[in-house]
Nucleic acid binder design. Structure first.
Ligand SMILES: [Mn+2]
Ligand SMILES: [Mn+2]
Length: 558
DNA sequence: ACCACACACGCAACC
DNA sequence: GGCCAAAATG
DNA sequence: GGTTGCGTGTGTCATTTTGGC
């Protein structure tokens, strides 16, 4: 057993084989993390990849990073690799690449240009009543109907002057990517992007023990759920997909992902008008909002008594404030339908209202900034960016603390459990220590100094809480001068109570009065716009704690 | 941080 | 040849 | 007139190359 490798870092772009070095360092890291979970196929691939000639390795990585699994060799010309036919030979010998694979018409249509189709498949077109003038996509539509089967390119068009190859280890490669990133939306281009400085990441200490998956079956469950989602997106029938949805999982992370899939399937049924089927699916989903949708399904099916029973149960233990708001609207409707006395509903505060008429511009928010901003009372268009960033800066170490399972690759802008309910509790003492600095206004351990220091030390590093483009130094200084520490504490504690729900909904604008040392927030509403649920929650919160917030209604000057 | 949120906008239904 | 979207590139 | 639900459009490195129309 070799020593544990260093966590992967992007290779220098000076080397034309930089992508191969990146891939190999990722493979070494995957191996260090997952030896005990590999199956034979993965073990075999990992050990034998290194024994391939370098051009074969490089070509493999080039193909992995390109779209699809099937390529024509005249489009695989890379200066640093040399002759594709030579480079691919060892891969074919191992069976990792198939030479001249059978191609469906649709695969064929992806590989050939329209001109080549006209030149080499004229007979096929004629047999199906098509002419060369037809659009490429229309031709394919007609031919796909005909169910022509799969043949190698050498059978479809023997005269064509190039060769086609197909990777046969795509599923394995996807699995390796999944193990490395813990998700399937990031890919190996992250390395280049990081190296180019397009994205820069905090360097959290990583150890092989902190890996994305702890159990073999979890990797498969993840991949399987993902495949179901792709089938849904591809338009496959819901019933067919449902047949393959796995049962409830004891891993809460995966059960959430399963809940999201069921939620999406339910919504698809809903849009098909199958409300009863949708309701049954929503009932199985643990996704936030599933119960709310289920209630709507019951209401729309006029099952008012049943809906009321479930709504009362929900009101007794709402999953979130957002559900509470939904119930406040639903319950009166149900009571009316059932001829019951109107239910008691939580009272919402009436926000301070501002009206103005402005010359028409592209952005209402910007128009209001122009109108209100002046030297002594500057206005900034910040939405969620300011308060989230102040939180992210004050609590940087807590957010990027290397807890078990939180960080496992070098391209994360947040810990893996950011949106899980236990995010704050797992870091309770860390966050308490960060927030305690709010009690210290001045000095090098005070919150202002810490935020300024972090701003400079971490500037440009990706964080889920900090959008650097939205936070220049003048805005930061205004905020530190005019926002009371007590308000910051209340905002940050609220954010920590439910990151997913509370990181959005903050007002468009903030105006500072440095001479008075105070501020106000302004939510702008153009003609036809209205407050969203999360904005109303923010508004209620501010009203409760005496934080100044106006809603500014704009009409256009004609 | 799971092609997604996080915004504004616009239509239709309802009282 | 111009316009556009998708794919490839570092 | 107001309210409410629900579907929609916009955006993600920047630049070059490719292919369809
Ligand atoms: Mn806004
Ligand atoms: Mn607004």
């Amino acid at each position: 057993m070799n020593a544990t490798p260093l966590p992967p870092r992007p290779a220098s772009l000076d080397d034309p084989l930089y992508y191969l070095h990146n891939f190999r360092s990722a493979l070494r890291w995957i191996e260090a993390c997952y030896v005990d979970l590999f199956d034979d196929d993965e073990r075999d691939f990992l050990t034998r990849f290194d024994t391939l000639p370098e051009p074969a390795q490089a070509l493999w990585v080039r193909m992995v990073m390109r779209k699809g699994d099937t390529f024509r060799d005249d489009r695989l010309g890379y200066a640093e690799i040399g002759m594709p036919a030579t480079a691919v030979a060892p891969l074919i010998e191992r069976g990792w690449v198939q030479n001249d694979p059978p191609l469906s018409v649709s695969a064929l249509w992806l590989l050939l240009t329209k001109a080549e189709i006209g030149r080499h498949l004229n007979g096929l077109l004629r047999d199906h009543g098509l002419t060369r003038g037809a659009r490429k996509a229309d031709m394919l539509e007609v031919l796909a109907e005909a169910d022509l089967g799969e043949y190698p390119l050498t059978v479809w068009c023997p005269e064509i002057p190039f060769n086609v190859v197909r990777m046969t280890r795509m599923a394995l490669c996807e699995r390796l990517r999944l193990m490395f990133f813990g998700n399937l939306h990031q890919d190996w281009s992250e390395f280049v992007l990081a190296d180019l400085g397009v994205r820069r990441f905090e360097r959290v200490p990583l150890s092989p023990a902190s890996r994305a998956f702890q159990r073999r079956e979890d990797i498969h469950t993840y991949a399987h759920l993902h495949a179901c989602r792709e089938r849904l997106e591809a338009g496959e029938s819901i019933a067919d997909i449902l047949h393959d949805v796995p049962p409830a999982d004891d891993n809460p992370w995966l059960e959430n992902r399963r809940g999201k899939l069921l939620f999406l399937l339910a919504r698809a049924r809903e849009r098909e008008g199958e409300l009863a089927a949708a309701e049954a699916l929503y009932a199985q989903s643990v996704h936030p909002g599933a119960r709310g949708r289920r209630l709507r399904m019951l209401e729309r099916q006029a099952c008012h008594a049943e809906a009321l029973e479930l709504a009362n149960a929900a009101a007794a233990a709402p999953e979130s404030e957002s559900e509470r708001q939904q119930l406040d609207r639903l319950l009166p409707r149900l009571h009316r339908r059932l001829a019951l006395a109107p239910p008691s509903v939580t009272e919402e505060p009436v926000p301070a209202r501002l009206e103005m008429t402005l010359p028409r511009t592209a952005s209402v928010e910007r128009a209001v900034v122009e109108h209100l901003s002046c030297e002594s009372m500057p206005v900034y268009y910040v939405e969620n960016a300011l308060i989230n960033a102040l939180f992210g800066l004050l609590c940087w170490e807590a957010v990027f603390a290397p807890l078990a399972g939180a960080f496992f690759h070098p391209f994360q802008r947040a810990p893996a459990d950011l949106l899980r309910p236990e995010f704050a509790s797992r870091r309770e003492t860390l966050f308490a220590r960060c927030l305690a600095r709010l009690e210290v206004p001045e000095g090098e351990h005070g919150y202002r100094a810490v935020i300024r220091r972090t701003y400079h030390a971490k500037h440009g590093l990706e964080s889920a809480f900090v959008q650097w483009e939205a936070l220049d130094e003048s805005l930061l200084e205004m905020a530190l001068a005019c926002l009371p520490a007590a308000h910051l504490r209340l905002w940050f504690e609220r954010l920590l109570r439910d990151v997913r729900a509370n990181r959005a909904g903050m007002p468009d604008l903030i105006q500072f009065r440095p001479e008075q040392g105070d501020y106000r927030m302004i939510e702008v509403k153009g003609p036809g716009d209205r407050l969203q649920d999360n904005q109303r929650r923010w508004l209620a919160f501010c009203a409760r704690h005496g934080m100044p917030l106006d809603v500014c209604h704009v009409t256009w000057a004609s």
